[in-house]
C-alpha cells in the first residue's frame, strides 16, 4: 500500500520540507496571504497540468498547451475588445475551439499512428501561428466582466484571498481526481499507458480514449488560457512560451512516470505547488535572479527521474 504511493509521498515530503525551510527563513510563509497568492499565481499552470497528467499517464505528451493558452488569450482579447462579443459567449467559443483542436490532434495520433510528440509539436506551431494571424499586438482586455470576476474571492482568516481563479484550479483538480480514479475513462487512460497492445486486446476503446485524452488536454489548456487572461487582463501572442515544459516538469515531479501508466492527479497538484513555492521563495529572497527557479526545477526534475528509475528497478527485483 505504501509502496504503491511512494512517489506521491516523496513529492509531498519534498513540498513539506521545502515549506518548512521557507517558513524558518520567512515566518510570513505561514500567512494565508502567501498561501492564497501561491494558489492564484499558479492557477493556470495547475489547470493545464491536470490535462497533461492524463496525457502522460496514457503514455503520450502534449507540447501544444502553451500555444493554446496564448491563442486563447489573443482570441478573447480580439473577440471582446475588437468585435464586442459578450465575454461569456467568448469563453464558451474558445473552450469549444480548444476541445476541437485537441480532438483533431488525438484523431491524427490514433488514426495514423503518428507519435504524439510530432502531432502536438505541429499543433504547437499551428496555435502559435494562429495567434499572430489574429494580431501581433498585446491587446488589453477592459471588459467590465473581467473586473467583476477578478474581484470574486473568498477571504480566508488572516486576510488571505482565495481568488476565483484559484477556486477554478482546485475544482479542476477535484474533477480530475474523480475522472482519473473513479470512471471507466480513467481506467482506460491508465490501461493505454500500461501497454497499448494489451489494452486493445482486452477490449479498451483505444481510439475513443486517445481522442478524449487530447481533447481534455486542449480543453483544459483553453480554460487555463481564460484564467491566464484574468490574471494578466490582456491577450498577447508571445505569452506562455515554454509553459508546456513547466507543465511536464510539474507532472513528473508530481510522481507520474513519463513513460505512462503510473501516477496520480493529486501528485501533480503537489508538483505545481513545489514549483510555486520555489518561485515564491526567490521573490522573498529578493537578491536571487528568477532564473534560479529554473535551475532548482531542473535539479528537482533530474532527482525525481533518477528516483523513479530506482523505484521501478527495485520493484522489478522484488518480484
Amino acid at each position: 500500500m505504501i509502496r504503491r504511493h511512494l512517489p506521491v509521498l516523496i513529492t509531498l515530503a519534498v513540498f513539506i520540507v521545502g515549506y518548512l525551510i521557507c517558513l524558518a527563513q520567512f515566518p510570513s510563509f505561514a500567512s494565508t496571504r502567501v498561501i492564497g497568492n501561491l494558489l492564484t499565481d499558479n492557477a493556470f499552470l495547475g489547470i493545464v497540468a491536470v490535462g497533461m497528467t492524463f496525457v502522460i499517464l496514457s503514455g503520450g505528451i502534449d507540447l501544444s498547451v502553451g500555444s493554446v493558452i496564448a491563442f486563447t488569450g489573443v482570441f478573447l482579447a480580439v473577440a471582446i475588445e475588437r468585435y464586442g462579443i459578450n465575454p461569456y459567449l467568448a469563453f464558451v467559443l474558445v473552450l469549444g475551439i480548444g476541445a476541437l483542436f485537441g480532438a483533431g490532434m488525438g484523431l491524427l495520433i490514433h488514426a495514423f499512428q503518428i507519435p504524439a510528440f510530432i502531432v502536438t509539436l505541429a499543433g504547437m506551431f499551428l496555435a502559435r501561428g494562429l495567434c499572430f494571424v489574429l494580431t501581433t499586438d498585446s491587446i488589453p482586455i477592459n471588459a467590465p466582466a473581467y473586473g467583476q470576476i477578478t474581484e470574486i474571492a473568498f477571504v480566508m482568516p488572516g486576510g488571505g484571498r482565495l481568488t476565483f481563479i484559484a477556486i477554478v484550479m482546485l475544482v479542476t483538480f477535484a474533477a480530475g481526481i474523480v475522472l482519473a480514479h473513479f470512471t471507466r475513462f480513467g481506467a482506460n487512460v491508465y490501461a493505454l499507458g500500461g501497454n497499448r497492445t494489451s489494452a486493445e486486446l482486452m477490449g479498451v476503446p483505444v481510439g475513443r480514449t486517445t481522442i478524449g485524452i487530447y481533447m481534455l488536454s486542449s480543453l483544459l489548456a483553453a480554460l487555463a488560457g481564460i484564467v491566464f487572461s484574468f490574471y494578466t487582463s490582456a491577450g498577447y501572442s508571445l505569452a506562455a512560451t515554454g509553459v508546456e515544459l513547466d507543465t511536464i516538469a510539474a507532472v513528473v515531479i508530481g510522481g507520474t512516470l513519463l513513460t505512462g501508466g503510473y501516477g496520480t492527479i493529486i501528485g501533480t497538484l503537489v508538483g505545481v505547488l513545489i514549483q510555486g513555492l520555489i518561485q515564491t521563495y526567490i521573490t522573498f529572497e529578493g537578491t536571487l535572479s528568477s532564473w534560479w527557479t529554473k535551475i532548482a526545477i531542473g535539479a528537482l526534475l533530474f532527482a525525481f527521474i533518477v528516483l523513479q528509475r530506482g523505484l521501478s528497478a527495485a520493484s522489478l527485483r522484488s518480484r
Partner: peptide, 9 residues
Amino acid sequence: QEVNLLPNL
C-alpha cells in the same frame, strides 16, 4: 506465456 494483461492496473 507472456501474460497480456496490464501490470500497472
